[in-house]
Structure formats: structure tokens, C-alpha cells
Simulated assay, not measured.
Amino acid sequence: MQKSADEKILSYNDVVLRQSDLGILSGPHFMNDRIIEFYFSYLSSCHSQDILLVPPSIAFWLMNCPDATSLKDFIEPLKLHEKKLVIFPVNDNDDVSVADGGSHWSLLAYDRNANVFVHHDSNHGMNKLRAQQLFRAVVGFMGDSTSVFNAKHLEFSDSPQQTNGYDCGVYVTAIARVLCCWYDSSEHKDKGDMWFSSVKEQITPSAVAEMRKEILQLIKGLIGGK
């Protein structure tokens, strides 16, 4: 019997994937929130607890929360001030009433050692204003190192660019993985380098195409291992 698009196929940590998600990964389609949240959760289980990968729904809420008190209450459990590397997905959805809205993903990352936020956008800075909006929402919660007396700022990286109109979410997952591996390596701690050269070397159109396949096979493997 053929499965319906809405049928649940996998529960992984707090993420529930559906049959339609496999179709998204199988073809040239825009990545949805669930797949990105799943892969971020998977990366979290594989890498240092010093790294926080913020789920898309939470990043979106932080960016659009209209009330400062509610934002503080919501953000404190994330313990942003304790994390060494924080990775946020950025979506251009401007309608908070629409789930899975928007048409472009990018990535905002904070490195505590360098005390800097960096925005990676695979489509010519399309999400620049959204990244700035999220930066302003969270910068005051990152801890003492980001006080007004220190050099907190937001950089816009010269990121690898997508070659089509649908792979932005795959770029986000691929860059997130590079950043996690970069942090867990011993080399950057000795040199004080950031991850820019690693992203430039590893994030290529062919690597991104392979990334889509890898996530699909990861999900199928987890389904088969249930």
C-alpha cells in the first residue's frame, strides 16, 4: 500500500518526519523546517555539547517575538551564554501565521572565541535584513563577552553560492556540518582561525548535491533500524 504524504515515518528526538519529507529530499525541492530541524538534531547528537544548533521554529520565533519580556523568558533555557558556537537557521518568512513559509534559508553563526556573528547566505545576501533582525534579537543574551564594551558585531561572509533556486536549505545543513566539524577539530583552537577556509573548500555544488542524498540515506537508515 502506498503511504500518504502526511504519514509519519520517523520520530527522532523531538522531530517527526513524514513521507513527504522523503520526496523533498529525493528531488529538486526547497528544504522545509522539519528536515533542517532533524539534521540539526542529528548534528547535536554527534558533536560537542559546547555547540548549540537552534531549531528553525525557535530561530524564527526569536527573530519575530514582539515582546521583550516573553523573549527573555523563552531564550533563557537555551543558555546561549554558555555555548561556544551557536548556529541559527534564518528564514525570510514575514508572516508569523504561516508555518513552513518563506522562500530562502541562510545561516547565522556565533563564535564565542572571536566574539563575532557571521552570516552565510548562498543567494547574494538575500537574507541580510533577516540576519540583522535575528542578530539584534539575540546579541544581548550571549553573555558578558558581547557587552557594549566589547567588539560584538555581525559579519557577512563571502559564502559559496547556490547554482539553482531550491538548494539554500541544503547549503545551510552543509555549512552547519562544516562548522561543527571545524569546532571539534583541534587545529582551530591552536591557530585561533575561524571556519571560512573550511567552508570555502568543502561547500561546492557537487558536495551540496551529495548532501541531499546523504540526509535521505540517513533517514532511511534510521527508519530501517527501528
Rank of each mutant, 00 (worst) to 15 (best):
M1C: 04
K3L: 15
K3Y: 11
S4T: 14
Y12N: 03
D14V: 05
V16A: 10
Q19E: 13
G23L: 03
S26D: 11
P28C: 05
P28Y: 00
P28I: 01
P28E: 10
H29Q: 06
F30D: 03
M31I: 14
D33H: 07
R34A: 15
F38L: 09
F40C: 08
Y42D: 11
L43K: 09
L43E: 00
S44R: 12
S44C: 10
S45Q: 13
S48T: 08
Q49P: 03
D50R: 03
L52C: 14
P56T: 15
I58H: 00
A59W: 00
F60M: 06
M63H: 07
C65Y: 05
P66V: 14
D67M: 02
D67G: 02
T69M: 09
T69C: 00
L71V: 02
L71A: 14
K72G: 01
L78R: 08
K79A: 15
L80H: 07
E82R: 14
E82M: 09
L85I: 13
I87L: 15
I87V: 15
F88D: 10
V90S: 07
D100M: 00
G101F: 01
G102E: 06
G102N: 06
G102K: 02
S103R: 03
S106E: 04
S106P: 02
L108M: 03
D111C: 10
R112F: 04
N113Y: 13
N115S: 14
N115P: 00
V116S: 07
V116C: 14
F117Y: 15
F117L: 14
V118G: 08
S122Y: 05
S122L: 02
N123I: 09
G125L: 13
M126D: 07
K128M: 06
R130V: 00
A131R: 01
Q132R: 13
Q132L: 10
Q133A: 13
Q133H: 10
L134S: 00
R136E: 14
A137V: 00
V138S: 09
V138I: 15
G143V: 04
D144K: 14
D144W: 06
S147L: 02
V148W: 10
V148C: 02
F149T: 14
F149Y: 12
F149Q: 12
N150Q: 12
A151P: 04
E155F: 06
D158A: 12
P160D: 04
Q161E: 15
Q161N: 06
Y166I: 07
Y166A: 02
Y171W: 07
V172A: 10
V178N: 04
C181F: 00
D184S: 07
S185N: 12
M194F: 10
M194R: 08
V199K: 07
V199A: 04
E201Q: 13
Q202M: 11
Q202D: 06
P205S: 02
P205C: 05
A209C: 03
A209N: 11
E210S: 12
L216D: 01
I219Q: 00
K220W: 04
K220C: 10
G224F: 04
K226F: 01
